[in-house]
């Protein structure tokens, strides 16, 4: 099974989940990113990190694996050093720092947990941008908050557009011998500045253009209808139900103390119980939802293929 997934990721990236209705995508990410930001239990952190990491690699292929590892490992090391430098709470004193304050096991563990949380949230957001494209966001929020949703999607789109335009402008300038790699340092700085000024003008003009064109098309007006190709079909209903059931169960379970874990003053967790396990299983099932969908789709595809 895994072999199939890896081969598939290399040829064409899988995003079966992307074809689902935007509301399904959005609710999924609200649950998963919200929970990843809040749950500090090591088991839930591991679940979130592993599934977020796997999913981002599945979506973006080998390249994502490399970039993920490049920032993930330094962040983990950095946080586990930084936290005990400022936080000295905890009953297990390992050593005394030169300042005289204690270095405690609890603060080191807490630093690691916080780092895991940051990394998993970054992973989830990289998946979010891949799945929740701006047209989906506008589709969901264009009616309720028209101007804000347009601004959000334009802002998110701005960075890639800006860097693409930067390349175009820099190439055009290079043809005239005004590249940032030509001449003395002062000349190079001058060339760089002129490129920057061109880019700024372009960005401002572009923003006004977009605003005008949206206005002339009647965007945000009450009578305006919007064409969309999104249908909420049976498949979406199933996925939506799945996400809602596990999401709400996890929420209730964590609110009633199923994921209790404390780091200070001493590390302590709940005893293993059926209820506690069920909350983690529900959380795992929620996080793995798109991965399961991909696997299931691949299996179905293979089954059909072999019959021919």
């Amino acid at each position: 099974m895994e072999e199939i997934i890896l081969r598939e990721t290399e040829s064409d990236k899988m995003n079966e989940f992307k074809t689902y209705h935007p509301i399904v995508n959005f609710v999924y990410f609200v649950f998963v990113i919200g929970f990843s930001c809040v749950f500090m239990h090591p088991v839930s952190l591991t679940i979130s990190l592993l599934s977020g990491f796997t999913y981002s690699v599945m979506l973006k292929g080998r390249k994502a694996l490399k970039t993920n590892l490049i920032y993930m490992i330094p962040t983990l090391i950095f946080a586990s050093f930084i936290n005990p430098a400022f936080n000295h709470e905890g009953v297990t004193i390992i050593e005394y720092l030169p300042s005289g304050n204690p270095l405690t096991l609890e603060s080191v563990v807490y630093g690691l947990a916080a780092a895991m949380m940051i990394v998993s949230v970054i992973c989830w957001f990289s998946c979010y941008t891949e799945i929740m494209t701006s047209d989906k966001f506008i589709y969901l929020f264009g009616r309720i908050i028209p101007s804000l949703s347009l601004i959000i999607s334009m802002t998110l789109r701005f960075v890639p557009r800006f860097s693409a335009q930067l390349k175009v402008v820099a190439n055009a300038q290079r043809c005239m011998g005004r590249d940032v790699s030509n001449g003395s340092i002062i000349k190079r700085a001058k060339h760089g500045l002129s490129i920057l000024s061109i880019m700024t003008t372009w960005a401002l003009e572009n923003a006004i253009d977009t605003a005008d064109s949206m206005k002339s098309r009647g965007y945000g007006h009450p009578g305006r209808t919007a064409f969309s190709i999104f249908n909420f079909d049976k498949r979406d209903r199933k996925a939506f139900l799945y996400i809602m059931v596990f999401g709400i169960y996890t929420l209730i379970g964590s609110l009633s103390g199923g994921m209790y874990f404390r780091y200070f003053p001493s590390i302590r967790a709940n005893d293993v119980s059926v209820f506690g396990l069920s909350v983690f299983v529900a959380y795992g099932a929620l996080c793995m939802c798109p991965i399961l969908i991909e696997i299931w789709e691949v299996r179905k595809w293979k089954a059909i293929e072999s019959k021919i």
Binding site: H88, E89, G90, V91, I93, Y96, S99, G100, N101, P102, T104
Partner: peptide, 16 residues
């Protein structure tokens, strides 16, 4: 205080 807490393995945190 710092010396006695260290000697008796009692946790102490301070800030300058």
């Amino acid at each position: 205080l710092v010396r006695e807490m260290k000697r008796n393995k009692i946790h102490l945190e301070f800030e300058n």
